[in-house]
Design a binder for these strands. Structure first.
Lengths: 138, 138
DNA sequence: ACCTATAGATTACACTTGTAATCTTAACTG
DNA sequence: CAGTTAAGATTACAAGTGTAATCTATAGGT
């Protein structure tokens, strides 16, 4: 499967949140507030506005890339993702970790730790993952 | 700073391994075996061959992007990274985690766990990170 | 002092990406 | 039924990318 670009990914995100969806549903979802600018800057959500032509182009590209499928409904299309979000994010994560950290996940986490980007919640989530892992692999 | 492409990143990798370095040093390093195809497939290292013109183009682009600097040495250049590897990989990791996992690192690790992509070493590395973190944050 | 190999600079070129505008056709509106 | 609207298809277009080839100037060999 060909690569999915960043903009395409955002469209896919909207679709994963709710599908099947018409192009207009997707455009609306993308332009909803709440696709947050929560980067800790405290700025008002000055959301990017997605132009409908842009979104439709991206949908077409996703269809060509077989990342999205559609079915005719009257004269409209209803789109659905053909990829599972989890599979996709895993693939991308592995690819990044392979390229940057020789496939090892710990150095990535270590980078976060070093920059103080881990909080108590992150740590307890990690601990719980680890104990699950240990439950299954002893 | 502008984005660094995948191919550019590979050149930077070679440079991070040893610098300052001439273009030829970098080309040689890129074409060395051992920049491994260790993806667990057991295939023979059928290394990508980097064409010298290609590498020089990429070096130029990196210089334009201020990711790499150089100084004249006689008539040659000696290149050096202007970015720290660690800072760069952290930025990229954070960006991916922001886009795919709402900034949370645990879901990424969870994906790996689910796919059986964690082994004992990974787990102990993570545990040790966690205990360090706890030592510093209690 | 000339010729050549070579380093770096410049140019090339197809493909992708972000971002739309225009075209075509069918459905709704009056 | 004719005109307008709107959905999807097609086209656009600049910037970035991967991958080089060609150009230019100079250092080194003979």
């Amino acid at each position: 499967m060909t690569e999915i670009s960043n903009a395409e990914f955002e469209v896919l995100e909207a679709l994963w949140q709710h599908y099947p969806a018409s192009a207009n549903d997707i455009i609306a979802k993308l332009n909803e507030s709440g696709n947050s600018n929560t980067h800790g800057t405290g700025e008002v959500n000055q959301e990017k506005q997605w132009h409908d032509k842009t979104v439709k182009t991206l949908l077409n590209r996703l269809v060509k890339k077989q990342a999205v499928g559609f079915e005719k409904q009257q004269r409209h299309y209803l789109y659905s993702p053909l990829l599972e979000r989890e599979a996709y994010t895993l693939k991308e994560s592995k690819s990044l970790i392979e390229r940057m950290f020789s496939g090892k996940i710990a150095p990535l986490v270590a980078g976060f730790a070093k920059q103080n980007d881990l909080n108590k919640d992150d740590i307890s989530a990690l601990k719980s993952l680890i104990s699950d892992w240990e439950k299954n692999n002893d």
